[in-house]
């Protein structure tokens, strides 16, 4: 993957070590990207600008020296690669900046929610029925009806939130556009 420079080249023969170093440094980001699939060295705002510059700046002495034909094309190719890699990272940074990654609702939270809602809805229904019993004097029937209604309300609540949760899960999986508000 690393194109080893031709050491017999007259350009390099003079300062072999430096040229090799600068070549390796120039190609290092691409090499890492090819090896690991992701650029390990990222441009985060001001995390380490010095290091970044070190990796991408060609050594300045090189430009003035005469270069052979073959080396010129290979260098322009590597410069193109560098620009492309930078463009990829720029796109990634822009996407990340525009759309912050959303966390799905935690399963534990949903579990707590369902369990209490069902129970409490039943209890509230029963309490309402009991209250009506006290007010009107229809002793067992209000409590009974309230209990049944409360149960229904609890079931309905769970079904509705489950539907909503599934919709959200699906949109979280399928959607790419950030405007997903109802």
């Amino acid at each position: 993957m690393i194109r080893t420079p031709q050491l017999t080249d007259s350009r390099i023969r003079g300062s072999r070590g430096r040229a090799l170093m600068s070549h390796l440094l120039q190609n290092l980001p691409n090499t890492i990207k090819q090896a690991f699939g992701t650029p390990l060295i990222r441009l985060t705002h001001a995390s380490s600008p010095g290091r970044f510059r070190l990796l991408f700046r060609g050594s300045p002495g090189e430009q003035q020296e005469p270069m052979s034909d073959q080396d010129g094309t290979s260098r322009s190719r590597s410069a193109n690669d560098t620009i492309d890699a930078l463009a990829d990272r720029l796109d990634a940074a822009r996407r990340k900046h525009l759309k912050p990654d959303e966390k799905p609702t935690s399963a534990m939270a949903l579990g707590f929610k369902y369990a209490t809602e069902f129970t409490v809805a039943t209890l509230v229904g029963a309490a309402l029925g009991f209250g009506i019993d006290k007010l009107v004097g229809t002793s067992p029937w209000g409590l009974l009806a309230g209990l049944v209604l409360g149960l229904c309300a609890g079931v309905r609540e769970i079904i509705l939130s489950a539907q909503k949760g599934m919709e959200q899960g699906q949109t979280a999986i399928s959607s790419e556009d950030p405007e997903q508000e109802q």
């Binding site: 809602e117 409490v120 809805a121 209890l123 509230v124 309402l128 409360g150 309300a153």
Partner: peptide, 11 residues
Amino acid sequence: EVISFMSRPIS
């Protein structure tokens, strides 16, 4: 719906 609404603060 009313029962659900009333049970909200409790739950």
